[in-house]
């Protein structure tokens, strides 16, 4: 192998052909109301943990639904389970349930 002094950049696209979507499916089969998210962002706006860390509940669960589990477990661990997000969610999503379910399902990732 020759070192040319540069590498090959890796593709950044979410690849829905190769991602494991089964785990995502198991998650929203258990908590189908997660699917009703309309990305308003009020959960993230009010999040106690998000105020002091990069935690973005909306973004993390969206990535999980696309089969991108990379940082999800560590990110969800930032949640302080205060429950304010569930109070503000206009679609009444059981957000704490989502946090706990994602952690449970993705513990191995």
């Amino acid at each position: 192998m020759i070192d040319f002094g540069f590498g090959v950049n890796t593709a950044r696209a979410i690849n829905m052909d190769t991602n494991d979507l089964d785990t995502a499916r198991e998650i929203f089969d258990r908590l189908p109301d997660l699917q009703a998210c309309m990305a308003c962002g009020s959960c993230t706006a009010t999040c106690t943990a998000g105020a002091i860390t990069s935690f973005n509940f909306r973004k993390v669960h969206t990535l999980v639904r696309r089969g991108e589990y990379g940082e999800a477990y560590a990110e969800m661990s930032k949640c302080m389970l205060c429950g304010k997000c569930r109070l503000v969610c206009p679609r009444g999503i059981n957000t704490r349930g989502v946090v706990l379910l994602i952690k449970k399902k993705l513990g191995d990732y």
């Binding site: 040319f4 002094g5 540069f6 590498g7 090959v8 950049n9 890796t10």
Partner: peptide
């Protein structure tokens, strides 16, 4: 050092 863009 940017050639990784191109080759990728």
């Amino acid at each position: 050092s940017n050639r990784g863009y191109s080759v990728a």
